[in-house]
């Protein structure tokens, strides 16, 4: 195996054979060490949240990764390659420059969910609203609230902590499951909402111009919600419950109670975009 060890022959074949073996073995070892070193280097919460989201996003079904411009009708079919982060997306910038942004609608009901034209929506079912003082309030949207059912507790990140787009925003425990709700913003938590407020977090965003570029606007919301409804329906259809939502129908106020046997952990996990 090694030069000068007995039975080592300085013949081209012998030397080549062992060289190839040593090269391969070192390649395996080096690649493993590289992975370990990169792992050791990624230890900030931001990096970890980033990795978590990208791993989850990778595993989402392709139908779920539809680009917002597909929802809006700007392009026929496009799968998001950026983990729903339009801030750095060149396609988003190009289309936005080409297609005129339609003005927001008035307060509207989408399939029985009340959505607001003054709010921006994140694909993980949170909303963001800019306050007068420049901060943003964050809450779970109506669709999210309805499918969560009875919420038992909400674990919010402490005031002063950092949030990352698509990182963990809060942990919601309902009667049926525990769901990690994704953060719609990059920023610092400045306040928690009280019982009277309809918001849960107040966040001071870092970059003001692009802080909300990636969030859905009122004109994208109806199509998005339609797709989410379809997805929810499909989940139930194969989870052994049968067809539950007639086309065009609305969610019953406490429809949760009708499906005690459904795999809520699975359904909610998928609706809130996590593995």
């Amino acid at each position: 195996m090694l030069p000068f060890v007995y039975e080592f022959h300085w013949t081209p074949f012998h030397v080549t054979f062992l060289l190839v073996f040593f090269t391969l073995f070192s390649m395996v070892a080096a690649t493993l060490v590289l992975a370990l070193r990169r792992t050791a280097a990624k230890d900030t919460p931001e990096q970890i949240e980033h990795v978590r989201w990208h791993t989850d996003f990778e595993d989402l079904p392709a139908a779920l990764k539809a680009c917002r411009h597909e929802l809006r009708g700007d392009v026929k079919h496009r799968t998001c390659p950026n983990g729903f982060d339009c801030r750095t997306c060149t396609v988003h910038a190009q289309i936005n420059a080409r297609v005129r942004h339609r003005p927001g609608m008035q307060g509207f009901q989408v399939y029985g969910f009340s959505m607001s034209p003054y709010r921006l929506y994140h694909r993980g079912h949170t909303w963001v609203q800019q306050e007068k003082d420049g901060t943003y309030t964050v809450g779970i949207d109506d669709f999210g609230k309805r499918i969560l059912g009875t919420v038992r507790s909400v674990e919010l990140p402490p005031v002063g902590s950092r949030l990352y787009v698509n990182g963990s925003g809060m942990l919601v425990r309902s009667d049926d499951a525990a769901v990690r709700v994704l953060s719609p913003l990059d920023g610092e938590v400045v306040a928690h909402g009280t019982e009277e407020d309809d918001w849960l977090l107040k966040v001071r965003a870092e970059q003001d111009e692009t802080a909300t570029t990636h969030l859905l606007t009122a004109d994208e919301v109806p199509n998005w919600i339609l797709r989410e409804m379809e997805r929810l329906q499909a989940s139930f259809a194969t989870a052994g419950v049968g067809v539950t939502l007639a086309d065009g129908g609305e969610l019953a106020p406490n429809f949760h109670r009708h499906f005690p046997k459904a795999d809520w952990d699975g359904v909610l996990g998928q609706m809130f975009l996590q593995a």
Binding site: L24, M27, V28, T31, L34, A35, L36, R38, T39, K42, D43, Q47, I48, V51, R52, H54, T55
Partner: peptide, 21 residues
Amino acid sequence: IPKFLVFEFELHKLMPVFAGI
């Protein structure tokens, strides 16, 4: 466990190397 999460992510990126070998 964050280390496992990141390690899986990094290993996955290097998978073509292992597949080649």
